[in-house]
Design a protein around this nucleic acid. Sequence first.
DNA 1: CTGAAAGCGCTTACAG
DNA 2: CTGAAAGCGCTTACAG
Lengths: 340, 340
Amino acid sequence: VNGEVLLKRPTIRDVARLADVSVASASRALNGLDNVTEATRERVLAAAKSLRYLPHTGARSLSTRRTDTVGLILPDLYGEFFSELIRGVDMAARERGLHLLVSSSHGDADEAATVMRSMRGRVDGLLVMSPHVDATVLADNLDDDLPIVLLNTRVAGVRRPAFQVDNHGGAHAVTRHLVESGRRRIAHVSGPPSNFDSQERRRGYEDALAGEQASLVVEGDFSEASGRRAARLLVTGSMRPDAIFAANDTTAVGCLLELRELGVKVPDDIALAGFDDIPLARLTEPDLTTARIDIADLGGRALELLAAGVEGEDIERSSETVRPVLVVRRSSAGGGTAGA
Amino acid sequence: VNGEVLLKRPTIRDVARLADVSVASASRALNGLDNVTEATRERVLAAAKSLRYLPHTGARSLSTRRTDTVGLILPDLYGEFFSELIRGVDMAARERGLHLLVSSSHGDADEAATVMRSMRGRVDGLLVMSPHVDATVLADNLDDDLPIVLLNTRVAGVRRPAFQVDNHGGAHAVTRHLVESGRRRIAHVSGPPSNFDSQERRRGYEDALAGEQASLVVEGDFSEASGRRAARLLVTGSMRPDAIFAANDTTAVGCLLELRELGVKVPDDIALAGFDDIPLARLTEPDLTTARIDIADLGGRALELLAAGVEGEDIERSSETVRPVLVVRRSSAGGGTAGA
DNA sequence: CTGAAAGCGCTTACAG
DNA sequence: CTGAAAGCGCTTACAG
């Protein structure tokens, strides 16, 4: 019928008709293939533009078996880390023209598994950060050929491409810094004992002390409240330390607040250090010595690796370790008991 | 061929064959339609399970014209807000079985437009937060029939479903609190003059003062540095205030740090208040009076509205206002100049 | 309740 | 360089 009005979304057929070519040529022109004349390409592109044509991604992915989308599966994370990671991944994804399907806040392995399954078929690859996931969960819920990169997740018994934070090294560096600035009784407030990061940080602390000093550990759980409790315990106890290394910054902030209330001066009486370098670490009084991880960068690099896997590169043996950087601030200044 | 091995992802055809029914029945059973016998459904489900079948979403969306995915478009946001919003949206989306396509960090209208276009066809609806977007951008880059909910975005000249934060009301409440606790020279450190939130907060401040006190405004830009600058200006100037209401918490933190350096006591010499209630607001010394917005809740409710739109409900006239809640903390305690 | 078949909108050998 | 046609994996009238 002549003079017909387009009621529906235009398809490639409409574009082809308007450009007076076959759908095959329209497809080729649209996709930037080189087996079309320049004249054809121009006509097709003009037609597409005038119709405000956009390909149906479902149809395309049905033919190409690609979705140009990657999934990001996250656990229930605290604010800063979470958003920095998404930011880093998102920027890298956008640069490569990949879309990002995000799912967060998964409390246990079951939830994570459900999400993995629901993403199967929607994505070309998966970025997974989940402390709950193990080899079985991975094997049961994903196709073997779906590229996947693990973020800071220890998956027992599986060799998968992963980005690991060197928690041991970071904790070691922080502790050595305290030792070398003259502190003689360095306590550690740990994270949850079941948490792998937490275990590694504690091990780094203990190894750094090895021989020179006895270790002094109060168990915490990465929360501010646990930092408060631990600080009170340490200060009022019989083994008062002259330095505290908290397993993360949030815990260190708890220590700081409690020490302040107890009238203990930081760093003069007790030096303090954390881990992560959350933005808040710069803002406390005094500001906080810590080990910095560039989360956004970590996310971006992980996406690059995943993208390589999607492109068909063999990434199965790739595994990168991110080394935290010691950031010395005022909370650990001066000399401690031994003077400086 | 008998004994053949499935090399590829199983399709509904494989499921149907194994269950010994037609693909039509398989489809119906899989989708929970009621026009299949219980026996058929069971056979199909069992077959699907044993094959680890998962529907190809592209194919499905080609038939159904739905993607079961919604897009979330964000500007370049500061950490806390960003992650809280995603968390809220994600949780609500998961509950409804919707997937979430996220794109963030868009500096200007062009970038936002590109993202909107790239999401067209991939999503059933869009959640858009962008200060840069206007009616033209929206109209040019989206289908008219794509449901969309705006988040805290003023779109001049368009009537679209939106969630607006009552910035005026929040600022008014904070300012009234300062007035009523006896402060007599209340200054305001504004956000960027071009920013709508910023304008509204300033208007709230001015309206709350109306008549009783003169307004005293220093222009800022929502950054900590601008808070520092403004505080210094106010304290060293000839019109020293006894209270400062900063346009957001980050600015207020800047004020606090600068006041501390200048030896000005908060709240004794100068009361201080912010806006947003970022987590840091509880942690400063003294902790910060502010106006709290429940961002995660906002995100969740916005998704619910969008989902209703996707289901075909008419949401074009819906517009919700989120009222911030005054949170009084120690930074505004006591009486100020007039005593308390 | 069930099945054969058309159709959704693309891409890609294949033949020319 | 171009086009006709098959095929990707689903859903859904339609007929029975």
